[in-house]
């Protein structure tokens, strides 16, 4: 795409891009793909950080998006529609027996009453083999990321769809095939869990802050 052309498309809204793509505007479709690659990748990553094939899955989502963009009834619901594709793929992957993980499993079984999949083993990420596909933020980011990872799939899903994608409860309910009440309670419980997990770290941070203040004084 020439620079000037790219500029034109870069200024269109998602809805406009979707409408153009539906009319076989190839450049609009390319822009649509480019605009969504990062959020698609990040969503998949946070849903299951230990996979080796996140890039492949993201590619699959974008490909399905491109293939089916003509089937969207209302271009304004594009975000919702795209998240349906992502979540369906996520559920597909949950169903598959072979999980492609960069992990070493331990023998201790993982007991969690909220785990939908039983018989999961406790896994730790093999950091030496994790590909350099992304950068990590501050230490707090790492902590919260760990905390989210420790949630069960259903809790992780609602947190990601709400806090990363900004979907409404109704949209989340429809995408996950549940009802608003379930979404409400899952989010509340997931938040409570996360709060518990990072609380000690937050207090530590607070302590360190005050120490710094005293040192300065």
């Amino acid at each position: 795409m020439k620079g000037s052309q790219r500029e034109i498309y870069a200024n269109l809204t998602i809805t406009e891009l979707v409408e153009k793509s539906r009319q076989d505007d190839r450049l609009a479709l390319e822009e649509l793909i480019r605009r969504n690659e990062k959020i698609v990748y990040n969503t998949l990553y946070h849903l299951d950080p230990n996979r080796t094939d996140i890039a492949d899955l993201a590619q699959e989502v974008l490909f399905r998006m491109a293939k089916n963009v003509k089937n969207i009834r209302n271009p304004a619901t594009f975000k919702f529609w795209l998240n349906q594709i992502i979540t369906n793929l996520f559920y597909d992957e949950l169903r598959r027996k072979t999980r492609r993980l960069t992990t070493i499993s331990m023998d201790t079984p993982y007991m969690d009453s909220d785990q939908e999949e039983s018989g999961q083993t406790r896994d730790i990420a093999d950091l030496a083999r994790m590909p350099e596909e992304r950068t990590l933020g501050s230490e707090l980011d790492t902590k919260i990321k760990e905390a989210i990872e420790n949630l069960s799939e259903q809790f992780r899903l609602v947190i990601v769809l709400r806090e990363l994608q900004g979907l409404s409860y109704e949209e989340i309910a429809e995408i996950t095939g549940t009802n608003i009440g379930t979404v409400k309670s899952r989010l509340a419980r997931a938040r409570a869990r996360l709060q518990e997990h990072i609380k000690p770290y937050l207090e530590q941070e607070r302590g360190a802050y005050w120490k710094m203040v005293f040192v300065i004084i």
Partner: peptide
């Protein structure tokens, strides 16, 4: 908590170019 989570998501860097691969398959 919500702020921390949102930030953490935002700070996840992305260094790939998946879009080009997909575009080449169109």
């Amino acid at each position: 908590l919500s702020g921390i989570i949102k930030n953490s998501f935002k700070n996840t860097g992305y260094k790939l170019d998946i879009a080009s691969v997909v575009i080449s398959k169109l």
